[in-house]
Design a protein around this nucleic acid. Sequence first.
DNA 1: TTTTGAGTTGTTCGA
DNA 2: GTCGAACAACTCAAA
Length: 473
Amino acid sequence: MFSDSPVIVWFRDDLRLADNPALHAAVAAGRPLICVFVFDEESEGIRPLGGAAKWWLHGSLAELDKALGVFGGGLVILRGRGDQVIETLATETKAAGVYWNRRYDEAGRAVDTRLKTALKARGMEAESFNGGLFHEPWTVKNKSGAPFRVFTAFWRAARGNGDPPLPIPAPVKVSFYAARPEMTVALDDLALEPGKPDWAGGLREAWHRGEVAGQRQLETFLEESLGGYTANRDRPDRPATSRLSPYLRFGNISPRQIWHAAMASGRSPDLDKFLAELGWREFSYHLLYHQPDLATHNFQPRFDAMPWIKDAAALRAWQRGQTGYPIVDAGMRELWTTGWMHNRVRMIAASFLAKHLLIDWREGEAWFWDTLVDADPANNPASWQWVAGSGADAAPYFRIFNPILQGEKFDPDGAYVRRWVPELAALPASAIHKPWTAKPAVKAYPVPIIDHDFARRRALDAFAQTRDRTTQN
DNA sequence: TTTTGAGTTGTTCGA
DNA sequence: GTCGAACAACTCAAA
């Protein structure tokens, strides 16, 4: 191997310079770097990104390229099967090795394992690192040596291991491999952002993508909203949640950076509550690792007997924010417009689909996958299963949100509904979560597509059926 | 080894 | 109006 053989840093869900273990190790190796991203929609089993996530990815890649530009280099973008493309690049450039941070979806892991084998067979280094989790999923186990299936015990065990390591600073100097690989494609050629029609206007208004924006968002959150987080986080009418989820999704920011920045702001019940949210993310990846088909199979097999209803019209009404329940519709429209939905409202809207409409949670998961900027392979399915009742440590089946009560409790003045459902803006707070009681009636807004009491009863009966069918077998 | 208590986010009903 | 019970079943971990 020549002394100036490059090292390849393969960026994936870790689109940042700071606290990036693979990049850090590559810089420390003292060789010229090739920083590369591979847009892969071809590998077997790879789930293509949804539209909103692609939009976020575009911005993240552009920002990363810009940040590398400060050091006189840039990001090389390639396209194709990840392992094949990287192996070809490594061979052509006579690379000393390839470094990357791990991912945890089954298809991605298979690609990485194949690549590692191929590189080692060629006598090249292949080094993988943990850049996205506090603990590798295979290291957290209960006393019987099995993976945890309930959150509280999982998080207790994880926290019992002490604080995660301190984040690694961004490199101060990076030297780049001079030649530009022939296979390079332009970012715009990936067509990650919409052309015509351009549906991303609301996303652009709501977000700044990339590492710098992620750090700024973290600072703002810690300064303005960590105090009082426990109570305010449930209020969609207040800007009280961290809004860090899309930055975490693409690794514009790392959990360790968030952890240590939050810890530095002082201990409090609010801090523990916020850290537990990072714990839920961690738990989701833990679940995904141990059940790779989390997005397609019930975590609790009993739900295989659930009598889901196929109802294209109801599904469409839910997707468009036309169910006639203001809090649900406000959430679905916020999602459509900004690529994001408030956590409390996600639960209400998801519960409405799975329990009121009895539509398979996988339909909802797919819609969120396509429309959320933060849609990730672990959190999205794990959270949907949790809400539907089929998941790990899931909501008890009888916990069926009443969309009227939830609206009145968490959006008491109706400010959130007024913002996203302007047809209802003139209603008084007393009617805004049950507009069918308003006089005169609001013509521009639909009547509820299903009665709450009827839907609740039906959902309970449906769940009872799964018990009967399961015990018969 | 067996038993026991607890477990993110709720609603309804009846006293 | 408020309050406690009921609404299952199962995993985990301490006793």
